[in-house]
């Protein structure tokens, strides 16, 4: 599914989190929103997911206006910065949550849900942890469970807020490749937020550099590195 962000702005009271920004994401692209703290990355991601509504502007999915769609109607697989796993449910129930929440007419039956959860656990290479609770997992395992939970709803796109933020360098590297693999396998349009430029450059097809609520540059990693459009991008990338 392709995503078009058309002159989106967001104000929180008097402060502006996003000046009007425009961005086109072709279907199946893996996009990084890159920028320093407070640049509006999370805000933009939450607007895409329907968790926040823009002050002005439109969001288009496959050319259709999606600005008014509720968070449930967006069907975006969202991975939160702190993972936000349901602490009182097992890993299995966490992953099954989205399927069990469907209206009866389109809800898979119990065995079908179990089959899909098992498949997702295999996909994230943690086949044996279905019975555990989130507190019994390492940070990297939690992150992968959060990803599996988001994938379970057969989302139209994948949105990840600093998916590797809380992990150590080695685990980060592994999971980066894991995300790339899952993206390539599912072909989902994927947007992830990061303030780590290596991560953005290594992983993404398209990098969006943001600063103070504005988009500074949109381009392939190579373009950003070799032809920075503004002084900010030059400084940020060489840092």
């Amino acid at each position: 599914m392709d995503i078009h962000i058309d002159e989106i702005s967001k104000e929180f009271g008097v402060s502006r989190a996003l000046h009007p920004v425009t961005l086109s994401i072709p279907s199946g692209t893996l996009v990084a929103l890159l920028g320093p703290s407070g640049s509006g990355k999370t805000t933009l991601l939450r607007i895409l997911g329907g968790l926040e509504f823009p002050t002005s502007g439109r969001v288009l999915f496959d050319g259709r206006d999606a600005t008014g769609l509720s968070v449930q109607e967006r069907r975006a697989g969202f991975v939160f910065q702190s993972y936000a796993l349901f602490r009182h449910m097992t890993v299995f129930d966490n992953i099954a949550y989205g399927l069990a929440a469907r209206p009866r007419a389109i809800r898979p039956n119990r065995t079908e849900i179990a089959r899909r959860v098992t498949k997702l656990l295999d996909l994230i290479q943690l086949p044996d942890i279905g019975g555990r609770y989130p507190t019994q997992l390492s940070g990297g395992q939690r992150q992968r469970v959060a990803l599996a939970r988001a994938l379970a709803i057969e989302p139209r796109m994948l949105l990840l807020d600093e998916p590797f933020g809380a992990l150590d360098a080695k685990v980060r590297k592994e999971l980066r490749q894991g995300l790339r693999d899952i993206h390539d396998e599912t072909g989902l349009t994927t947007v992830f937020v990061t303030h780590d430029q290596d991560e953005a450059m290594e992983l993404a097809d398209l990098v969006v550099v943001m600063s103070m609520g504005r988009i500074e540059q949109i381009g392939r990693p190579l373009d950003i590195r070799e032809r920075p459009a503004t002084a900010f991008v030059r400084n940020f990338v060489s840092a």
Binding site: G49, G50, L51, V71, Q72, R74, R75, A76, G77, F78, F80, S82, A84, L85, F86, R87, H88, Y97, G98, A101, R102, R149, A150, A152, I153
Partner: peptide, 25 residues
């Protein structure tokens, strides 16, 4: 609010979020 928001993105209605996520917590 993160767990509630997660449940919403997974397609749960407000009432479902309340009795499957908020209340147990």
């Amino acid at each position: 609010r993160a767990e509630e928001e997660a449940a919403l993105t997974l397609g749960a209605s407000g009432w479902r979020v309340f009795h499957t996520v908020t209340l147990p917590n």
